[in-house]
């Protein structure tokens, strides 16, 4: 490699790394805004603004969904297995909505500590399996995506460290 080419290579690599650092710092500074939703831990800590539209995310707690038989009203608890958030919603839920499933709810936190949702979105996990496999797992005593086991681990970690980690969901 001639000295001139070497110099050029270093100039380019230098410029690209500087740009990468700039982008990295910007994203780090904006991290709170880039997160799509607040977790129940963050809401319990008071990080989320009241009476303004926010998004909250977590798992629908097992056994917490109660539907009003007369209307589309539904109440459920969103949990990250550390703190819980009660959600009230009136409308049609996505097909994937079920207990133990990840959701993102859009709505306002009210003074009673509940979130009044305008929109409920289901969050899919990265696991795929045929129905027979899911059924076999369930019969063997596991929940299909094994959410509970995964989430319990996260909960234990959080208790020890006290820091919510985005990557665990």
């Amino acid at each position: 490699m001639t000295p001139k080419r070497k110099q050029k290579l270093f100039v380019i690599l230098g410029l690209v790394s500087l740009a990468a650092i700039a982008v990295g710092l910007t994203l780090y500074a904006l991290r709170a805004n880039i997160n799509l939703f607040f977790s129940p831990v963050q809401i319990a800590q008071g990080d989320a603004p009241m009476e303004r539209q926010i998004r909250a995310g977590g798992m629908v707690k097992e056994g917490s969904v109660s539907r009003d038989p007369e209307s589309l009203d539904v109440e459920f608890t969103v949990t990250d297995y550390v703190d819980d958030l009660e959600v009230y919603y009136s409308g049609i839920l996505p097909d994937l909505f079920r207990e133990g499933q990840g959701v993102v709810v859009v709505g306002e936190l009210q003074a009673d500590g509940r979130l009044y949702a305008d929109k409920v979105l289901a969050r899919h996990d990265e696991n795929y399996m045929p129905p027979e496999v899911a059924q076999a797992l369930e019969e063997a005593g596991y929940s299909p995506a094994d959410y509970q086991a995964k989430a319990a681990e996260v909960g234990k970690r959080l208790d020890e460290e006290g820091v919510p980690q985005a990557s665990e969901y």
């Binding site: 991290r31 880039i34 799509l36 995310g57 969050r123 899919h124 990265e126």
Partner: peptide, 20 residues
């Protein structure tokens, strides 16, 4: 890095696939 609606990767070259 962030909380997203999109799920993590189901298919990577490095780890066991999240599907049969």
């Amino acid at each position: 890095w962030w909380y997203t609606l999109h799920q993590p990767a189901s298919f990577t070259l490095t780890s066991r696939p999240a599907m049969p």
